[in-house]
């Protein structure tokens, strides 16, 4: 596959390491009442869609950026690639 890196342009997926669902960005609040339950769901309950999936890829032999890649798991068509850092900020993550 070719991943169109937002900074570097098209790069072979061989250069990347796959992690999984981009929902891993949404790490729960450790001080919440039900933190253990929230962390449990965060870590173990994932969708596994046949179709559009937002997922995390690490440009391991590249610029070391984590990317959020939107990919159709049935066709491998990639419709969007974003820097995970930007996605994380947009989803309210800070420090």
């Amino acid at each position: 596959m070719i991943i169109n890196h937002p900074l570097l342009g098209p790069r072979d997926s061989q250069e990347f390491t796959y992690l999984g669902d981009a929902a891993l960005i949404d790490r729960p609040d450790w001080q919440a009442e039900d933190a253990v339950d929230q962390f449990h769901d965060y870590l173990y309950l994932r969708d596994n869609p046949a179709g559009i999936h937002r997922e995390l890829w690490f440009h391991e032999t590249g610029d070391r950026s984590w990317l959020v890649v939107t990919r159709d798991t049935t066709t491998h068509e990639i419709t969007s690639v974003e820097l995970a850092r930007d996605v994380a900020r947009a989803r309210g993550r800070s420090k």
Binding site: T17, I25, L56, E60, W66, A84, A88, R93
Partner: peptide
């Protein structure tokens, strides 16, 4: 290698403003 990747995950995806 794995630890470095994990640290970058925490830095970029969980604590982007650190």
């Amino acid at each position: 290698v794995g630890v470095y990747r994990h640290l970058e995950f925490v830095r970029q995806c969980l604590c982007p403003d650190m």
